[in-house]
Design a protein around this nucleic acid. Structure first.
Lengths: 328, 328
DNA sequence: TTGAAAGCGGTACCAG
DNA sequence: CTGGTACCGCTTTCAA
């Protein structure tokens, strides 16, 4: 038994298929006829085929979300919030998980024009010329999230200000020899902007001895980096680009029998739940990922509706914790 | 400038649109003609509209994945693995995130018939009569994942055997007074099957004094539950239904100045990366979520191809860790 | 108010 | 090999 079509329903209700279509799309249908159609639909569990609908109709009510991963807690939260908000507007998100594969990310961009989505949101870490070119060929509302973009509309976290806050805090606690453990600058937001903010905050607070250490987003590698660093360092504070790195620092420091914050002060970025379960509580930044996702969804809807929008920055919350020692 | 259609391309190449269609679908096209078409497509960046394609063609190459959340690390891993595998077969997953909302989960099931997917995978925690009824109306390959289902095909983790292994291990380490901290039985796999396995293992190992404590999947609530339990308990081992609960146990026990495994033995389930970073290393079960996702995708493809399949159980790895004390 | 008919952008059969 | 033509399931004039 193949699925019924609008034609079948029309036949069963003894009306034309255009009338059934009108029934669904809010056109003129006599109350009497309406009832008959409703009854048949009810009995047959009929609902119109979305593919066919969006072929002819100009609306598909679908929005693409391209994300580098869903395995990251923060990404998942942002995506979930976008999802939620888009649905509340009657739109269905189509999630593309590129699994950190740049080629696939580019491919997704290409295939956007093949699927009937009304707009697309890219959770970008890196925006290359290829991205910009493909997006420019796209001819649909497009939004970059989590990354400042030199071109186009974007929603980003205020990494600079957050970094500044952390840097300033540590500086004002009296630290003068500080190490920052960051990630590759290819990730503009986390790798560059965040670091620049931290450095500016440290500098304004009077810190001049700043060491930079390159790590990545993994716990394992971070431990290695920190283990080496601890062997000979004059730093009293380690500012970490993410909470995961901070957690690696905690464990390395504990392993060599030192204490936080007595021997070393630590800060993170992220405000994951895990920070709350660290002892002592980590001094970190909590970004409002839900707000970011929600704002992105709302902006996308507005773009689809043809309204003018402008890029936005999402705020953050400073979590003082107890991992920074005041050494005055 | 609206998107070009196959008709435009045909006109530009000076051929009929059926020829262009054949060009894409591997039919007869003279080399000469082929070149001309290729050139036009290249110049115009043309690619066929997927919506239109799947309307007429019987294949849409899309598979729905309905998941209660993507914010859970394990779910995300399974989904990512499915995604990866489906794509490698040329299928595109359409992810539905129901956000733990049962009504939405049911709605998703309903809407499956409206979108042109060739099959659907449900990451289920609870399978109600409503689910079964809706699925039975579906008329497309359907697969339950992460949950044994009384009906239909499913892929599930071997929670029973894993539980048995944990129970048996603790029993054989000489513990005689044991507390199991589980979750609601509505979650059949984790709440019931896992517990049953643990109990069976304990019993076969000679344990008769078993206390059950109900918690949930959250770290916070688990701490509360464990805090109360520690006030008066004769148990020497706390078997936790998840690693998160085990982590809560670690922290509560450390907070009252006791030691693991000297004072209390702890076990978990999950094998998240977080277990590796716990001190002492947690005795736990590592389920192979990637394998689960991959197997699900493969099975779905086979179902779509009309092959006969049967439900599968995914194995696990026992991580001994060092959180269970041998008290012989 | 209603239904016939013309598409939407493709695919596939069939005659040439 | 190629192009004409009939659809896929639904929306949208438009005339009745």
């Amino acid at each position: 038994m193949s699925r019924l079509t609008i034609k079948d329903i029309a036949a069963l209700a003894g009306v034309g298929k255009s009338t059934v279509s009108r029934y669904f799309n809010g056109g003129y249908v006599k109350e009497d006829t309406r009832q008959r159609i409703a009854k048949v639909i009810e009995e047959q569990h009929y609902s119109p085929n979305v593919t066919a609908q969006s072929l002819k109709a100009k609306h598909s009510y679908q929005v693409a979300i391209i994300t580098p991963t869903i395995e990251s807690y923060t990404t998942a939260r942002v995506v979930t919030a976008m999802d939620e908000q888009l649905r509340s507007f009657g739109y269905t998100p189509v999630i593309y998980n590129t699994n950190h594969n740049e080629e696939r990310e580019l491919m997704s961009l290409v295939s956007l024009s093949r699927i009937n989505v009304e707009g697309a949101i890219l959770m970008a870490t890196e925006i290359t010329q290829d991205h910009i070119k493909l997006v420019s060929q796209l001819d649909m509302p497009f939004l970059y999230v989590a990354q400042e973009s030199p071109v186009g509309t974007h929603i980003s976290l205020d990494d600079y200000l957050a970094g500044y806050k952390i840097g300033r805090t540590v500086a004002e606690a009296g630290h003068r020899h500080v190490t920052y453990i960051g990630v590759d600058e290819k990730d503009i937001a986390v790798g560059r902007t965040r670091k620049n903010g931290v450095y500016a905050g440290l500098k304004d607070g009077g810190v001049t001895d700043m060491t930079f250490l390159l790590s990545d987003f993994t716990y394992e590698h971070s431990r290695t980096v920190i283990r080496e660093a601890l062997k000979q360092t004059s730093s009293t504070a380690f500012l970490c680009a993410t909470d995961t790195i901070a957690m690696a620092a905690y464990h390395e420091i504990q392993d060599i029998g030192k204490k936080i914050p007595e021997d070393y002060s630590i800060t993170g970025f992220g405000g994951y739940d895990s920070s709350a379960i660290m002892t002592p509580p980590l001094c970190t930044i909590r970004f409002n990922y839900e707000e970011e996702g929600t704002a992105a969804a709302e902006m996308m809807i507005e773009m689809i509706q043809g309204k003018a929008v402008q890029s936005e920055k999402i705020g953050f919350e400073f979590i003082p914790g107890n991992s920074v020692r005041d050494i005055h």
